[in-house]
Design a protein around this nucleic acid. Sequence first.
DNA 1: GAGTAGGTACTCGGATACAACATGTCCGAGTGCTTAGGG
DNA 2: CCCTAAGCACTCGGACATGTTGTATCCGAGTACCTACTC
Lengths: 158, 158
Amino acid sequence: MQMGEGVEWGLHCCVTLGWLADEGPVPIRRLAQWFDLPQEYLKKRLQALTRAGLLASTPGVKGGFSLARAPRDITLMDVVTALEGPVEPFPCTEIRRRGVSGEGAGREFDRPCGIAAAMRRAELAWRRELAARTVADLMDHSPGSAERTRRGYRRLIG
Amino acid sequence: MQMGEGVEWGLHCCVTLGWLADEGPVPIRRLAQWFDLPQEYLKKRLQALTRAGLLASTPGVKGGFSLARAPRDITLMDVVTALEGPVEPFPCTEIRRRGVSGEGAGREFDRPCGIAAAMRRAELAWRRELAARTVADLMDHSPGSAERTRRGYRRLIG
DNA sequence: GAGTAGGTACTCGGATACAACATGTCCGAGTGCTTAGGG
DNA sequence: CCCTAAGCACTCGGACATGTTGTATCCGAGTACCTACTC
């Protein structure tokens, strides 16, 4: 019950790309260097974000990754589902229908499983919180890091 | 980002044990037969619930598993943490401190990471929902299954 | 008939095997910019 | 000076290797109950 590290990486990269929007596309080599992450695997995860339409990739010598939408229009839910897939944390396999438990049930199982419903309610509360926050909120949270990132990146590529 | 099937099994077993409280301890063989689940692995998961103090195990020929507390005092959160461990869904590894990103930060990192805080807020909403529901709520959700379970179990052991 | 020894059915804990998935690495193809060479 | 071709740096997609975790099975030890046997 733990999401992959790619989620943390992806979120930090989205915020950083938001701060560096004026610098043009940021190559994967710079991003990996910036956070000291494995370059090839980070690329794989950012490609997932690109497929989901959250990032834009520019080929060519001055290419790299950039945000495909305004930071205000990218929610944490978008990033999580793009990286983890549309999988439900609690997949109900309807074990109540199996074995002796499922015999002679009549129309009893027309109603949804109470356990699955309770777990789904909790999952929705989680999703609601994630959908309520955007990359723009994260960018505004630490304005000091924003300026420091811009300075550091210009020094890095200069 | 998916919890093991043991969680679904454990919840269904807790509800069933609640319904069968008058029948005495239920051996693992009956529970596995009831839901058509692999007996040995189900035992392992129920042992985790026993270690957590949610179930009580009785050795001997008329032994088996039974609820260790009143159904009203067992929350879904209890069951999930007992089976999945106290692991956070989003472990923050502080990648902002790593690589070039962490250089010359001053006291900037004294404040908690905004990304981790946002993810934690969503996680807490999830935990709150899980802690608000108990095994007793699940038992009351389908009174028809309760009676049918008792009849079926008596027929099974009779 | 009372006490004791053995058998039985269950739990418990550890050891092991297997499968699925996350993580990490590598390579070939495609693309656009840059540069060198030729007219 | 202009046009073209080659080289370069990057992304993309797939293939592959590795490590970790979830799933599943098996075995020996311990325990309580039941039965049979002995005195």
